[in-house]
Each structure stands twice: as C-alpha cells, then as structure tokens.
C-alpha cells in the first residue's frame, strides 16, 4: 500500500511549471491542422452537374437543389439544378464529398466560420454559372 500524504502532486507541479505551457494562445497563435481535417465545404461550380446525390445523402439538410434553367433531352424539357448550401447547419461529416462522383465538392481547412450575418453562411457559388 503506497504511503498516503497530502501534496503528492507537488513535485510534478514544479516540473510542469518549468515546462512550456501546453495550451496555445489560440487566436494569436494558429494551430497546424492535420491533412484530413474537415473544414468549411467548398464547391467547384465547373464540375457540378446538378445530379442531386449530395442533397440526398446530407444528414443535416444543408443542401437544397434549385432550378436554374432547363435543358432538352430528346423531346423532353428537364430542369437543370444546382445546389445551394446552408453552411450554418453543416455537421462536417463529409458524406457529400465522398458521394460526389464528379469531385466537385471538397472540405477546406477553414474552420473559423463565426459571422454576424447568417447570410454569409449560405453558399450560392454553384448558381452563378
């Protein structure tokens, strides 16, 4: 049975005091992110075909498809759709990125998404084209 004593942590306390602090002064000192880090979603409008798979798999309902025009297939008029992302509800699971067959989606390293305007978090990039 080890000896009971008050202040068993004191030696380690002084050792810790001489070491560098393990916390980082975050906003002043950025952290390096691992290669697989999942940050803000980004889309390459050139590659998106509007296939809607991302909207179907998204667990948080981030993605809504909007009609931006029509195209003719045979003798039928089909709507052309593009996604709009409501990033404020994104849960960063990356399922849409995994399921995008055209590699149009990617997760960037950006994670400081706080903003005073909620509209900033609605990504309409794909609509412009």
């Amino acid at each position: 049975m080890p000896r009971r004593r008050a202040g068993a942590a004191i030696p380690e306390m002084f050792r810790t005091m001489l070491e560098k602090p393990s916390t980082r002064a975050y906003p002043y000192q950025k952290v390096e992110l691992p290669a697989r880090f999942r940050g803000k979603l980004d889309i390459d409008p050139e590659r998106c075909t509007g296939c809607q798979v991302c909207a179907m798999v998204c667990p948080a309902g981030v993605i809504t498809m909007i009609d931006i025009g029509t195209r003719k297939v045979g003798d039928k008029e089909l709507p052309v759709k593009r996604p709009v992302f409501e990033l404020s509800t994104c849960i960063f699971c990356g399922e849409c990125v995994d399921n995008c067959a055209f590699k149009a989606l990617e997760m960037t390293k950006q994670f400081e998404l706080a903003t005073p305007h909620k509209e900033d978090l609605t990504m309409r990039k794909a609509l412009t084209k």
């Binding site: 393990s22 691992p34 880090f37």
Partner: peptide, 21 residues
C-alpha cells in the same frame, strides 16, 4: 492536457476530434 494526445490522434485519423464520422 493528456487527453489532447488522444484527440490529436483521432483528428489525424478521422479528420475531426469528436464526431469522427
């Protein structure tokens, strides 16, 4: 502080600290 060790490993493997997906 020592828990950060695990979280860093998990982040390196899965890309997120808590919700690994």
């Amino acid at each position: 502080r020592d828990r950060e060790v695990v979280l860093d490993l998990v982040e390196a493997i899965s890309g997120n600290r808590i919700h690994k997906s």
